[in-house]
Simulated assay, not measured.
Amino acid sequence: MTESLATQMVDGQPEAFRVLVVEDDPVTRRLLEKLLQRSGYQVETAGNGRDGLALFEAGSFSIAISDWMMPEMDGLQFCRAVRSHDQQRYSYIILLTAKDSKDDLISGLEAGADDYLVKPIHPAELIARLNTARRILGLERSLRRRNEEIARLSITDSLTQVFNRGYFNQQLPAEISRVRRHGGSLAIAICDIDHFKRVNDRYGHQAGDAVLSDFAHCLRDNVRQGVDWVARYGGEEFA
């Protein structure tokens, strides 16, 4: 595998997959680290589950490879702890173990592992499992981006790109509740464009759309960023 294969697109830029290896045996840990680095992954290692969890919480790892039997915190506890976190991005967990019974497999998956490898580890098999992990992570992140875009579009006016009436109706009660709880003041300004129908009648709807967009941008550029917001209430009316 070349280095370019072990990358993902983040905000339109290629970024190497970061892998956390949690393994108490120093020889196995070092072998895994070297194998993954040669395959183009960025790797960090820990000698037990507790140290691994601390690294996981401090960093952003796409994939975690964890041994099952470890001191202080075993692989199942590590999996459960990782899954208990509210992750913005999903992390794929591969569990390594000498256990090979169906009951053990089920226990590992129920604890939060995505995949399972029985020791001794065959390098080609591990790389193949990592390829699968990258495909699944790629699909998950593509779906997440689409959902974020759908959520954005659902509250955005398609013409002016400010918030729409649905957002206004949803957010105004929340703003009123916030002021009632914490005190302070709340101001709402309703603006419209006088004689806007004349613009459409005389110059056409395309010109009218341009006027609405320019007016919305003017409003948005002159409110406090991160504090105030602008919504198209309907037609040529804005709030």
Rank of each mutant, 00 (worst) to 15 (best):
T2V: 07
S4K: 12
G12M: 04
R18Y: 03
V19W: 05
D24E: 01
P26N: 05
R29F: 03
L35P: 06
S39F: 04
S39A: 15
G49S: 05
L53A: 11
L55I: 07
G59R: 05
D67G: 10
P71C: 06
P71D: 09
L76F: 03
L76M: 07
Q77Y: 05
R83C: 02
D86P: 02
Q87D: 00
Y90F: 06
Y90M: 04
I93P: 03
I94Q: 01
D103M: 01
D104L: 01
L109Q: 04
G112E: 06
Y116H: 00
Y116A: 00
T132E: 00
A133M: 00
R134M: 05
R135E: 01
R135A: 01
I136Y: 03
R146H: 12
E149T: 14
E149M: 15
A151D: 11
I155H: 15
S158V: 14
Q170T: 14
E175V: 11
I176A: 05
R178W: 10
R181A: 12
L186M: 10
A187D: 12
D192M: 09
I193D: 10
V199Q: 07
V199G: 07
V199H: 09
D201T: 09
Q206F: 09
A207K: 12
A216Q: 07
D221W: 03
V227R: 14
D228F: 08
G235P: 13
